[in-house]
Amino acid sequence: MAYTNEKLHVVFGDGTLGLQGPNFHYLFSYERGGLESLVVNDREWLYRTPIPTFWRATTDNDHGSGFSVKSAQWFAADQFTTCQQVSVTVDGQQLPELPVAPVNNRYSNQEFADEVALTFTFATNTVPSTPVTMTYTVKPSGQITINAHYTGHTDLPELPTFGVRFTMPTTATGFDYTGLSGETYPDRLAGGVPGTYHVDGMPVTPYLVPQECGMHMQTKQVTVHRNTTQNNADQVAKPMALTFTQVDQPFAFSCLPYTAIELESATHLEELPLARRTVLGIFGAVRGVGGIDSWGTDVEAQYHIPADKDIDLSFTIDVPEN
């Protein structure tokens, strides 16, 4: 299909919504609760749908202060939070109901739009539960703006983190970012030098016991590089890249081969599974690591993430040129 009208091609499927442009093809799954497929230049960037993330692998200081025990609900929320509701908005008009059969029988393969937005509403697996929304707004260029919103609740424990987790099908060869040098946290970033940095691979900081690591605060942009896919018909390695850019505020990110819960489960580095995915976390709130002691003293108060305040996170995913 020739995309000469500079509009998004919208495919109203029965389980998915397809959005297409000259070199991209996105699938949003109503069942999976999010963006199931992000294909750019015929190559897939997603292993599973992006989800809101709340947990960080317990640091030694978290362990010592009992933070992980106090905030353990967020461990479950990170693993088991489910999508409750999906809404679709086309050119500013929210559709009254999900456009699946028979509602979508009125569409054709020639549906176009200037902007399509999907909002997925999650209910955290906490007691009480609180809503988290993820909204994807897609432009004809293929640019996706993601807004994640956490709804504050006074009866919940402090959060370990809040962000969006992308799992990519194969390992990254490296990443480039514009932000601070080194691994930084809200209470440990004064030594970070602003600049643009390249990191080879996805280094897991070799703390004796695997734990939260690899965070990069105050990031304007990060580009992840991969060169392999899982597609049996596309087995020739060649470079590809995807770029995540701040909207209003810098974000924090980590790019690791493991989820927080995988890190959490290992007592030594060698117990971690073989690296085979890329786990990119884009974070709107990061808790400090603390440092006064490792047996009880909490992180300084200004570096906590209170549960009763809303948190917003916005960033874009930009499709590179052909």
């Binding site: 640091t59 030694d60 200081n61 010592g64 691994e183 946290y185 809200p186 209470d187 440990r188 004064a190 900081t205 703390y207 004796l208 016991v209 734990q211 939260e212 690591c213 400090g288 690591v289 603390g290 440092g291 006064i292 002691d293 490792s294 992180v299 300084e300 570096y303």
Partner: peptide, 13 residues
Amino acid sequence: YMHDMGNSLGGMS
């Protein structure tokens, strides 16, 4: 001071 166990050393300021 600044017990640098694992991922630590926050709050030095």
